[in-house]
């Protein structure tokens, strides 16, 4: 997840003992899993807490753009599928929070970081879902991009994170398919539906490419992340793969990718594509996305409105403990 590269971290002189560090690096290089109670460099722990928790936040915030359409899903089947997908996303958030907590942070700390703006989440969710076709576009493109990031992470070095990713990937398979199926159906439907589908693709294409993060030359932490097996491929590599896989999918259903510079490059065996608007990317990262405020407000409100419920459950548990002790 590129989100960790967006933080400006002051380089801290390593206080890690050299022999332990060497042993750690050797284990990681040998494709071993690092488990919660194993020794690990402080920087590794910090990077992971950030990456895993931000991945978790992305899943949770990601429930909102789609949750927006569950009550308006146009058939019982679509309603059930969308509900199941959003439920899975909550579950994924949970697996990831759970993995992050093994590193010594708490749910409360992570949520406080999200709500205060200190922690980031995937900026794609700061775009609005305007029509039913957005449900198709999100499943197809956004989940598609997420899958490209997640599949390699099944062998990431940190055990709990890897195992969470295995679970996530198993469940993710239907997410992308249902999105593509929606688009396929719309593209072959009435004129109004075709227009809806093309419009959604027009709006979600570039933000989806931005999901892979800044260009490699602006990603200084990539090398270390790759050595630590927190990242398996570079941003640009993944982005190129995504374009190459997705363009034929669009063409197969008669939709046009909104990139006039898109061209097949025989020599490299992939597509050349247009320049991403990096000013938009960095603005959205800074918190200026079209519905960034709305997303945060919804999450903060849900948490604050829920305080009395959490307190009540705690109060009951305490009373029960007293009664049982008596």
């Amino acid at each position: 997840m590129y989100t960790t590269e967006l933080q400006k971290t002051k380089p801290v002189a390593s206080t890690d003992p050299a022999d332990k560090l060497a042993a750690f690096e050797a284990r990681v290089a040998a494709d071993e899993f690092i488990e919660p109670k194993d020794w690990m460099p402080e920087a590794y722990r910090r990077t992971l807490v950030r990456q895993i928790s931000q991945h978790a936040h992305s899943e949770i915030v990601g429930m909102l753009p789609e949750g927006n359409w569950i009550t308006r899903a146009p058939s019982l089947r679509r309603k059930a599928i969308l509900l199941a997908k959003v439920q899975d996303e909550a579950g994924h958030g949970l697996y990831l929070y759970s993995a992050a907590e093994t590193l010594g942070t708490s749910r409360e700390e992570m949520i406080e970081a999200l709500h205060s703006g200190k922690a980031k989440y995937s900026t794609i969710f700061n775009y609005p879902t305007l029509t039913w076709a957005d449900m198709g576009a999100i499943g197809w493109l956004v989940d598609g991009a997420a899958i490209m990031n997640q599949v390699p992470l099944q062998r990431t070095s940190y055990g709990p994170y890897a195992r969470a990713m295995v679970r996530v990937c198993k469940e993710e398979s239907f997410h992308q398919r249902q999105g593509y199926e929606i688009m396929m159906h719309l593209a072959a439907g009435t004129d109004a539906q075709k227009r809806m589908a093309q419009d959604a693709l027009n709006r979600w294409w570039w933000p989806s490419l931005m999901m892979f993060g800044p260009p490699d030359e602006n990603s200084p932490n990539t090398a270390q992340s790759m050595r630590w097996r927190i990242k398996r491929e570079t941003n640009d590599e993944l982005r190129q793969k995504f374009v190459d896989i997705t363009v034929p999918q669009a063409e197969a259903i008669g939709l046009t990718v909104p990139d006039p510079d898109l061209k097949w490059n025989e020599e490299k065996g992939g597509y050349d594509f247009g320049e991403i608007d990096w000013s938009e990317f960095y603005a959205v990262v800074k918190g200026e996305g079209p519905v960034a405020k709305e997303r945060m407000r919804a999450r903060v409100k849900a948490w604050e409105d829920g305080a009395w419920i959490r307190e009540a459950a705690d109060a009951y548990a305490a009373k029960q403990a007293e009664r049982n002790a008596a």
């Binding site: 429930m63 959003v86 909550a90 579950g91 849900a302």
Partner: peptide, 14 residues
């Protein structure tokens, strides 16, 4: 379904 995304904890969402 109206509760999606606005419940008190992620566990309760599920």
């Amino acid at each position: 379904s109206e509760w999606t995304g606005v419940l008190p904890t992620v566990e309760v969402e599920l």
